[in-house]
Each structure stands twice: as C-alpha cells, then as structure tokens.
Design a protein around this nucleic acid. Structure first.
Length: 555
RNA sequence: UGGGGCGUCGCCAAGUGGUUAAGGCAACGGGUUUUGAUCCCGUCAUUCGGAGGUUCGACUCCUCCCGCCCCAGCCA
C-alpha cells in the first residue's frame, strides 16, 4: 500500500496554504464541473480526486456541478451516469448537485447589467463574419459595426433573442472588451447565443443559452468557490474569467488555477473520441469493459480504491505528460492483490482422471481465500477422481527442464493447488490426435503436507473438480489500441483499434460456488488474474478479466 | 507567426542558490513461497533541453537559442 502522507504539497496546495496563511480565505470550496454530454473517464477521476480531495484535506466542501449550458449535446442520462460514477468512486457532496441551469436567470440579469454599463452589445454578425472580424493569431481584429449601438437598443434586442423572436445564428450578445487583444479570447467574446432547443432541466423557458466563458466564473462566484481548478487548456480563458468577476456584482471572487490533465498511453481520454467509439459501435457502450470510462473500469473489475490510489499517485503540476498505463495497472493489481478472494477457474480445460481412487481419501478440500490473510477465511472445494486442469499446464514434451516448465509432464509430479500431489501417467487421444484426457495418480496423503521424500513436484497448478464445476464464459481483454499514442500517427485514431481487444472464451470451468458471484465481487483466479462477474443481463455465468497477474516467466 | 504554458532517469515526478539530484512505475539481478503471484533485498541520472553569463557555489538567478503543448466554436 502506498501512503501520501509525506508527499510534499503540490502547487495548488501551496497556493491554498498561502491563501489560508494570509487570511484571503477561511474555508476552501472547490467544485467538480462536468458537462453532462458523456460519461466520466479516468481523466475526470484525477480531477474528482483532486477537487474532492482538497476539500477533504482542508475541511472544506466540494460541489458536484453540472455545467449544462449547451442543451444541444446534453442529456439527463449523462447526469444520472455521472452522479452514479462520482458516488461509486466514494465521494460525497453537500446537499444536492448544482447546475449551471439553476443560475440562468441570474446570469441573464448580469448580461443586462453589462449592456447597461456599456460592456456588452447585441451583435448581428453571422458566424463567418465574426470569424473574419476576429483577426488571427498575428493580426488584430476589427470592431463589429454593431459595437457602438445604444445600450437601450441592445437591451431590446437581447429581450427579443430571449423570447424567441430572433432566428438562431442571427444575433449574439458579446462582451465589449478589446478587438486588438493579443489574447484572442478577449476579442469581444460571445456571452449568449440563440438555441431554440429545449433543455433537459429548463425545458423551453430559454431560447438563448450562456457560453462557457460567461457562465463558469459566475457559477463559481455564486457558489462561493474559492479555488476553481481546471485543466491547462483553459489558461487562455483565465483573463476573461477574471474580467467577468471584476465587472459584475458577483458575491465572491473565485480564482482559477490550471493543472495538467491526465494522458495515458494506449488509451484515448477525450469525451469526443470515446463518444465516437460508442456511436460507431466499436465498443458495446460507454460501460464496455475496454473503455477508460469510470463505468467501463467498474464493469471490468477495477475497484474504486484502485482508481483513487492511482489518481493520488499522479502529480498535480503544469506539465502535460503521458502516464504509462503500467502505472495504472500497478495500482489495480496492488489493490486487488490485497482485497480479492482467491478462487480457481480453468480457462482451457482438459480432463484429468485420477486412477488410484482408493488413495483419494478426501472429497472436499479446504483452501484459504487468501494466502496471506487468515481473516478472509476458508472455503471447501469439492474434489473427486475427475478434475480439469488447463491445457497449457500439460505438455507431452518431456525434454523441458523443471525450471523451464514447472507444470505437468508424463512421469513427473505436480502439486494441485491446495490439494494432492499428482503424477501424470498416460495421455489418451482421439482419432485426430487431440488429447481427450490425461491419466494420473495421486500421491497419497499429500494434502496440506510437504512432498514425501524423493518426490519433487515441478510446480503448482490450479484445477477444478469436474463433477461439480460450473461452466462459464471468460472475457479476456487486451488494450483497446495497439499503439501507445493512437493520436500521433498519420491515420485516424480508429485505425489503431486492436482487433484482439476482446476474446470471449466459452467452456471454462469454475468452482461451483462462483455461480453465486455478483458484479463488484473481486476474485483472483489463481495463476490467471483478477476477475469479476459481468453485469450482462442473461443467465449465463460470465467473468471479465480485469487484469492478468504479473508474469515474469521468460519462456 | 501574436499571446499563454511547459522542458530533471524509458514513463510520472520531488527539488524554490550549498542535498551523495527524493520517491513511484518499468527494467534487471538475488532470496522466500503449495499462485512462474505476493513479499523481501539489491542495481538503475557525476547530471538536470542547449550555449553562454552572474556567484566561493546554479537543476535552482540572468541572457540567447532549441523543442513540445494550448488559444483564431454562436463547444466545454
């Protein structure tokens, strides 16, 4: 387990410490502000852990706020999924979730206020014209011909926009700042645009909706947010954020800080791209276990604790690097190793018939649920003269050394995990030459005991009793993308999808008790990896492989 | 190109003028082990994008250069 107790404060903590010391703030308020236009992914988890974590650390609060300013892309289903995901990650907010749409009336009043103060105007330039007037990175912009219209006229037109009398795209409300600013965001940005679309929360009340820039800082101010933390790409919006806070009679003065978003190799963490994967059905949905979404990871069998530990291991800094997925995988295994119950599942079964039945004195074998934690208890596993072992755990090649092949070989011994030591005697094949069963004999009285003198098992293999085994399907997953940076190549990121990212294996055999497994129960199928039961609706018993065990075996 | 931001081990990263340049991941050795897992021990930057300069002393300060990211939606 890792602890962060001795971690030095990151730059945002340093800012908060300084603010607290200088009495600039007395209670820390942060917020996690997703737009409900998709599912949350691992990148959001970093932001969630940061914002809720800071509130927790400083005894403040963190709001969950839906930034629902664009009904075109948003949906109540996303609000519900996001809410569930944040809760599942283990975070709580005070009272109800907040919504930008709750502040629409206040925002509108502030828009009128700006017009009255001659700081905003209704512009009739269309999108194309506005782009031309905006200038470029190196050329200053040109004032809109509507820039100096009377406030009273703008007020009148704004009202018409609001009540639906103006066509979409025909007018916008713009701030009057500086068309020659080196920061393009300050060249008279749009505050309101006309969208005659009903909103999931406000219905048809509005025909105009505030832009991100006009909404975000004011939302923070209304909620008393002290430290508004966002990702690096918003740094250029900060002067605008500050401009609104300075020019509006807002109830508080929040400050924006930017940190580097999480990038993971072999993964895409962009809502737009994840949406494309879903919409074009390259995956089964937002919660497909191959998706880096919170719901996908949950379904895959990654624990909330593992995600939090991983996020806490990440740096909060202003660099935009790419973290190796191996680091995430480390924290997934780190948590599951401690918390997952052990069980056995044979993925590619081959029957082993134990011929010296009179030497089998046990019909049940007691095995610990965890090798290093007595507290996790024991279970009784049925045992009989017919068992399944994995095809890969047997070879007819008797030339392989003990060190090279620590599994079953004719004439040699192996330990059945938790049970007897057995020796393979003979292979039975069908007409096609395929192995149908292996004949073996147990070494009497070896359960729970060291190997008798003169017998050295090659290794330990897992098994399942054939008579009581339950059939199941196992979903084996590989990375969704076959290249480290799907966005870097010449082609579109979809060209780098890994065709082998999901392999469904049927006819697997698990311990009978596993039929009772429930999604959210974590198991380690010994010598294979970590698994959890899939949430698929049918009655079929399906396990998702969360991640394999580390394997340092060099063949 | 104008503006903003960033460059320390394969990856992430601490470092805020005097440290033997933390730590994690990965990798590689070795030990324990009824999971080729876990666990344990060890190895892994004479060097901080580059070049100058200031200083007794620089990853930390200055100058110039190089590289990467973000901004020209009525997206967020």
């Amino acid at each position: 387990m890792t602890t962060n107790l001795d971690k030095p404060p990151h730059f945002i903590q340093q800012i908060i410490n300084a603010d607290l010391a200088a009495n600039r703030v007395d209670k820390i308020i942060t917020r996690f502000p997703p737009e409900p236009n998709g599912f949350l992914h691992i990148g959001h988890a970093k932001s969630i852990c940061l914002n809720f974590g800071l509130a927790e650390q400083y005894g403040g609060i963190c709001n969950l706020r839906f930034d629902d300013t664009n009904p075109e892309k948003e949906d109540q289903a996303f609000v519900d999924a996001i809410t569930a995901d944040v809760k599942w990650l283990g975070f709580e907010w005070e009272g109800d979730a907040c919504y930008a749409s709750s502040y629409f009336t206040q925002l509108y009043e502030w828009a009128m206020y700006l017009v009255t103060k001659n700081k905003a105007y209704v512009c009739e330039l269309n999108a194309e014209q506005m782009r031309a007037y905006r200038g470029t990175l190196t050329e200053v912009g040109t004032d809109s011909p509507f820039r100096d219209r009377a406030a009273s006229e703008s007020l009148m037109l704004l009202d018409k926009m609001k009540i639906g009398e103006i066509d979409e795209g025909a007018m916008t409300l713009r701030a009057k700042i500086d068309m020659s600013s080196a920061n393009i965001n300050l060249r008279d940005p749009v505050l309101y645009r006309i969208k005659k679309i009903s909103h999931q929360r406000t219905g048809d009340t509005w025909n105009i909706y505030p832009s991100y820039d006009f909404a975000h800082g004011q939302e923070d101010a209304i909620e008393g947010v002290t430290h508004s933390i966002c990702t690096l790409e918003f740094a250029a919006n900060r002067p605008l954020y500050d401009w609104f806070v300075a020019h509006l009679p807002v109830p508080s003065e929040p400050k924006q800080y930017e940190f580097g978003r999480l990038n993971l190799n072999y993964t895409v963490t962009s809502k737009r791209k994840l949406k494309l994967l879903v919409d074009e059905k390259h995956v089964a949905g937002w919660d497909d276990p191959r998706m880096p979404t919170i719901s996908g990871l949950r379904r895959r069998g990654v624990s909330a604790q593992a995600i939090r530990n991983f996020c806490d291991s990440l740096a909060v800094a202003k660099t935009d690097g790419t973290v190796d997925v191996a680091q995430f995988e480390h924290f997934i295994r780190d948590d599951l190793n401690v918390n997952a119950k052990r069980a056995m599942c044979v993925i590619k079964p081959v029957l082993v018939r134990l011929t010296n039945t009179s030497d089998i004195t046990l019909s049940t074998i007691t095995a610990p649920n965890h090798p290093n934690n007595e507290l996790m208890g024991h279970r009784n596993i049925p045992f009989s003269e017919q068992i399944f072992i994995d095809r890969a755990d047997f070879t007819e090649d008797t030339s392989l050394s003990r060190k090279k092949f620590k599994r079953l070989v004719i004439g040699d011994y192996v330990r059945l995990r938790g049970g007897y030591i057995i020796r393979a005697d003979e292979v039975i094949k069908d007409n096609a030459g395929a192995i149908t069963e292996i004949l073996a004999s147990v070494v009497p009285n070896t359960v729970g005991k060291d190997a008798p003198e003169g017998i050295r098992p090659r290794g330990v293999i897992h098994w399942v009793d054939a008579k009581t085994a339950k059939n199941c399907r196992v979903n084996l997953y590989d990375r969704l993308f076959s290249v480290a940076d799907p966005d870097a190549g010449e082609g579109h990121f979809l060209e780098y999808l890994n065709p082998q990212s999901l392999i469904k294996v049927t006819g697997c055999k698990v311990e009978s008790d596993l039929a009772l497994a429930v999604p959210g129960d974590y198991y380690q199928f010994e010598r294979e990896g970590y698994f959890t039961r899939d949430i698929c609706s049918d009655d079929e018993l399906v396990f998702n492989c969360t991640i394999g065990l580390r394997d340092s075996w060099k063949a």
